[in-house]
Amino acid sequence: MRINNGVMTDNMMRNLEKNMERLDKLNQQLSSGKKFSNPSENPIGVADSMELSSIISNHDQYLRNIGEAKDWMASTESALKNSGKILQRAREQAVYGANGSLSENDRKQIATEVGQLKDELINVANSKLGERFLFAGQKTNMDDQPFDADGNYQGDGRALRREVSPGVKMKINTDGKELFEDAIAKLDDLETALNDNDQNAIDNSIGELDDSLNANIQERATVGAKMNRLDLAESKLDEEKIQSQELLSNNEDVDIAKTITDLKMQENVYRASLASGARIMQPTLVDFLQ
């Protein structure tokens, strides 16, 4: 091949341009922190990034759903704890009231306290989390309260569910009708029995209150177990989220140390090509003919 000045400058310019391109690419990677910014630079990488970002946003959302569910269940649990205390107190009153040595008047006094306990229980059964009734089923924002003054249930007893991980829905609410309507009725019975000074009925109430207490404890156990499950799901999601973030970072984030090294190397190549260019461009025969 006949090499002349044109060939040499053309080649040098082309190579310089290529070196500049590589420098620019590395520079871009370093300044953006990303290995690629357009799908065409790495179609599979971009698709993976989109997928992983979507998965991370899933995790964020499920973690928020779990947070909501946990708030709800914590409120439920404290309501159940209070209602348990009320029932316990009522039982104590019933045992006290069953004492044969009490007068009719004494029993009437106890009846007043039991009446108070009943109202308190209705209050607890009407508990809210924010603006929403805990025990109204899906009628969470009903105008009246789920339990009226006589303890009649007006909610719908339907389940509330939250999606706590992909495809997994958990019922978060407790059926108020089952748990409270019965218990309120029993307190009502006890109040009447005390007022009527009916010792047999008072004795019966003790057993019935025990049933209600058991039901209460059982429900608290269920809520507790569910909260444990939510904690587990939460930590699992947290872990998965970190993994996905790692994967995303591996997929698209620049390895700074490596890229800086590459950049330095490329810079050297560029300098060398400039230096050699400067050498070959200058001398021609012109320089030596006087």
């Binding site: 091949m1 006949r2 090499i3 002349n4 000045n5 044109g6 060939v7 053309d10 080649n11 021609t284 025969l285 012109v286 003919l289």
Partner: peptide, 18 residues
């Protein structure tokens, strides 16, 4: 191809000076 063309048709200053 352009390189080849340049190689054949390009002006070599050395050659022209000679």
């Amino acid at each position: 191809l352009e390189n080849q063309r340049q190689s054949i048709s390009g002006v070599s200053l050395d050659e022209e000076m000679a």
